[in-house]
């Protein structure tokens, strides 16, 4: 297996494993900081695919137990929602939302 090939971790924003490891070395040691620094997990899927792997990499690199690495802040709407639809929700009854 050729280990020199780039491993993409965040598919939406094209962030590689190497970039993430470098960021951790630079001192971005929380999932929130990696997200803000690299934009990993800020694309279409909102980190659904990459965040568990990023958190695992942080754990491996810093030696902290995996369960101590917190996920980044979740932002609504959890799945992409068209602007027009969002406008209709907030225009109507606001009690339920």
């Amino acid at each position: 297996m050729n280990t020199n090939q780039k491993t993409i971790i965040c598919f939406c924003e094209d962030i590689t494993k190497e970039e993430i490891l470098k960021a951790i070395e630079q001192g971005y040691t929380t999932a929130n900081e990696i997200k803000r620094h690299l934009r990993a997990g800020m694309g279409e899927c909102q980190g659904r695919g990459c965040m568990p792997q990023i958190m695992k990499l942080i754990s491996q690199k810093t030696g902290k137990p995996r369960e101590e690495i917190l996920p980044p802040t979740d932002r609504a709407p959890i799945k992409p929602v068209p602007l027009g639809v969002m406008g209709k929700i907030s225009k109507g009854n606001q009690k339920g939302v």
Partner: peptide, 30 residues
Amino acid sequence: AASLGPLQRPIHTIQQYIPQLGNVNILRHW
């Protein structure tokens, strides 16, 4: 904490002036 209320006016204004943007997805709000 984010809420839906404050998004109302920006969304409606954008849609009013550039109607095509109504089909564009919102990813996050904060």
